[in-house]
Design a protein around this nucleic acid. Structure first.
Lengths: 217, 217
DNA sequence: GCAGACTGTTTGTGATCACAATGCCCTCAT
DNA sequence: ATGAGGGCATTGTGATCACAAACAGTCTGC
């Protein structure tokens, strides 16, 4: 691999940024099983770069909790304990209703229509039994609401939590019964339409907590 | 600077870890003003290492929001907008009461005594008009409570938020009147002693939100 | 048969270097 | 006096290398 002259000076497409985004998406969508081992040289080779940018991407993802570094520096996707899952679920249950409530005053009919469209795609994923598809479109649903809240710092925290849950959620949604996954989304849409903040907070909290609580005990 | 042979193989004291911890403490305690520029070579020289570990520490801190990377890659401590401060304050107001409530069943008299001792040191810092001292001991007070909650993921999120607020809080606490900074801490101690969860949640929320809300508007 | 030592390989860490882009400051023309 | 232009120092990026620790496989000795 010869030294590649830097063609593109755009910082948004620097080597470590590309690896970071690619890995982040894979992890958040649950496309990497918990406990999977990664290597810097492997990642570098996979993306056609040296170890340096791979290391930076890994460090960044580790700081966000998306990857685990062992005591000896080995890299792997995290295997979450039940306690940790409960904590992360509680955090979602605290923050996401707040984001929804902040989005509510700005939720016009156009937004709700787009949400309905995404929700239809969520249903497709459920009937197709496609966990990755489900996770991706479900996050899209939530993110579209939260973007309206104009609260980037809160959204960043929530996305970090999604990231930490990613590998585990995939396993989770493949082993559980999929009944009524859509009920909460319908309740969210109703509350958004009616402008009913307490109902919205409740529906959001249920949607977020329900799927994860069943892992405990 | 000649190549330093690796004396200490302990991963907890690797070069990038040392820089990370040192910088993190400085930032969280508000010892670096918002908008201060840093350089990789400068940090490396300061800690007697090359750019490589400095870069990793910076990348990690940037991922946590403790440092800002400009579009051209320049490194600086963040200058938070009022909106962002409000968001971070709201997050604290959501999460920290929950942590306190989780700690409550485990809060024995020994813990409360230690909290009283820390609180006395907080008072000293206030009378000394020492902002850094105040921030450090105040965080110690909160962290000691939250450690009892046995919720490492939640605590990590909260500490990340403290980290983001660090440089700004210093400025904040130097320009405001310091009346009744201790009132909330006393209320927290009372509620802990009485085992009164609703009062504890309320006192914690007030303590956390009060100081930061005055920046808006 | 099996546990423990050993060896070759893999892997993360940190240093160093080349490079391009950025930022800064001085100069000069208007 | 001021703003535009140019050259130089500074800075982040990525590649490459040396090194030591960790891991995995085998082999030996009991």
């Amino acid at each position: 691999m010869a030294t590649q002259p830097r063609i593109n000076p755009d910082p948004a497409s620097s080597a470590h940024e590309r690896i970071y985004r690619a890995l982040r998406t894979l992890i958040m969508h649950g496309e990497i099983a918990p406990g999977t081992a990664l290597t810097l040289r492997g990642l570098g080779a996979e993306f056609g770069v040296s170890m340096t940018p791979a290391r930076e991407a890994v460090r960044r993802l580790a700081a966000e909790g998306a990857l685990t570094l062992s005591a000896t520096g080995r890299i792997s996707t995290p295997e979450l304990s039940h306690e940790r899952i409960e904590e992360l679920a509680s955090l979602r249950g605290l923050i996401e209703p707040e984001l929804a409530a902040r989005a509510l005053p700005r939720a016009h009919i156009a937004l709700i229509d787009r949400l309905r469209a995404i929700n239809a795609r969520v249903s497709e994923c459920v009937t197709k039994q496609d966990a990755v598809c489900y996770l991706r479109t479900n996050m899209e649903f939530h993110r579209l609401i939260y973007l309206r809240a104009q609260a980037p710092a809160m959204l960043a925290v929530v996305e970090t939590i999604w990231l930490q849950l990613g590998p585990t959620m995939r396993v989770l949604y493949e082993t559980r019964q999929r009944t009524d996954l859509q009920r909460h989304h319908r309740a969210i849409l109703s509350a958004l339409t009616a402008g009913d903040e307490p109902a919205l907070r409740l529906a959001m909290r249920s949607d977020v907590t329900q799927g994860l609580k069943m892992l405990e005990g």
